[in-house]
Simulated assay, not measured.
Amino acid sequence: MFYWVMKHVLVGPLLRLAYRPWVEGRKNVPRRGAAILAGNHLAVIDSFLLPLMLPRQVKFLGKSDYFTGKGLKGRITAWFMTGIGTIPVDRAGGAASEAAISTGVRVLREGDLLGIYPEGTRSPDGRLYKAKTGVARMALETGVPVIPVVMVGTDEAQPAGRVVPRFMPLGARIGEPLDFSHLAGKAGDHATLRRVADEIMEAILALSDQEYVDVYAATEKSATAAGREPTPATRYLPTQRPAS
């Protein structure tokens, strides 16, 4: 009920008026049943806009920091994230990563739509980065389809450091579902998980105008913060690397 009120009464109408969201490929999202929506991540507003474009609720895994902020701003952020269906997870790695994957698997086994950003964090520069394998594990453990999604224009509307996105039309492209059910039973094989994660990023890349960078976004953020030059983009899609 809280989600419905947020989407249709409190926040949704304002966002629709401000950003006039458009979507291509809405038919690729199933009307019922579990699926993973795997998307690029350009700005905070991504998680707010995508649910507006779909008739079903999307449950996102979000960093727990969104729910533990101090003061009025922290309380408003926690309220807002709860209202749009974000599930808090610790993204510190190790056992925390396992807990996040378990949470995602639970959401999928309940028959819901799970929104996830395979890069693990927002792109530091608008380029598309290497996927972590958690999305592949969830797909193989549950057998649900993975639907590639690309948000368009959100990095221009809300560049890093900007709190309120500029008012402008924003959209999404949704690709055809990817079926990995033939790989059931291989969720514990790292080479298979890597290949599946790369195929998912290839599908996302095919929908977008981004360049691909074959390193993790978090690694790139740390490197550039230390003063190193940005990693060059590769001209190869993840699954089309030349043999070494």
Rank of each mutant, 00 (worst) to 15 (best):
158 Q>H: 05
84 I>L: 11
95 A>H: 10
148 P>W: 08
35 A>C: 12
41 H>V: 07
59 K>N: 15
143 G>M: 06
103 T>F: 05
1 M>K: 12
164 V>G: 11
2 F>D: 12
162 R>W: 11
42 L>M: 14
190 H>K: 13
199 E>R: 13
201 M>F: 04
55 P>M: 13
133 T>F: 06
93 G>E: 09
161 G>L: 10
91 R>T: 13
32 R>I: 00
211 E>L: 12
97 S>N: 13
92 A>R: 14
210 Q>N: 06
186 K>D: 00
91 R>H: 10
196 V>P: 01
5 V>F: 15
134 G>N: 03
32 R>Q: 14
155 D>W: 10
120 G>R: 05
164 V>S: 11
193 L>R: 04
163 V>T: 13
178 L>V: 06
232 P>A: 14
129 Y>G: 07
195 R>K: 12
85 G>D: 01
24 E>L: 09
228 R>A: 14
20 R>Y: 08
206 A>G: 07
181 S>R: 02
237 L>E: 06
168 M>W: 07
197 A>K: 01
44 V>G: 12
15 L>E: 01
222 S>D: 14
150 V>E: 03
18 A>C: 12
168 M>H: 07
149 V>A: 07
75 R>A: 13
40 N>P: 00
47 S>R: 00
142 T>I: 03
1 M>Q: 11
89 V>G: 09
86 T>P: 02
129 Y>Q: 10
165 P>H: 10
168 M>I: 12
151 M>R: 06
182 H>E: 14
101 I>C: 09
121 T>K: 11
229 E>W: 01
128 L>A: 11
126 G>R: 10
209 D>Y: 01
202 E>S: 14
82 T>G: 15
76 I>S: 06
208 S>G: 06
97 S>Y: 09
222 S>Q: 15
167 F>Y: 11
178 L>G: 07
190 H>W: 03
48 F>C: 10
142 T>G: 00
223 A>M: 12
164 V>K: 14
108 L>E: 01
50 L>P: 01
33 G>I: 11
136 A>Q: 04
185 G>I: 03
172 A>K: 11
11 V>S: 06
122 R>A: 10
229 E>Y: 05
12 G>N: 06
77 T>A: 14
173 R>V: 15
170 L>W: 09
46 D>I: 13
160 A>W: 04
54 L>K: 04
126 G>T: 11
159 P>V: 13
4 W>T: 13
116 I>Y: 00
57 Q>C: 08
44 V>Y: 15
212 Y>A: 07
11 V>K: 06
216 Y>C: 04
189 D>V: 15
135 V>E: 03
46 D>Q: 03
180 F>K: 00
177 P>L: 13
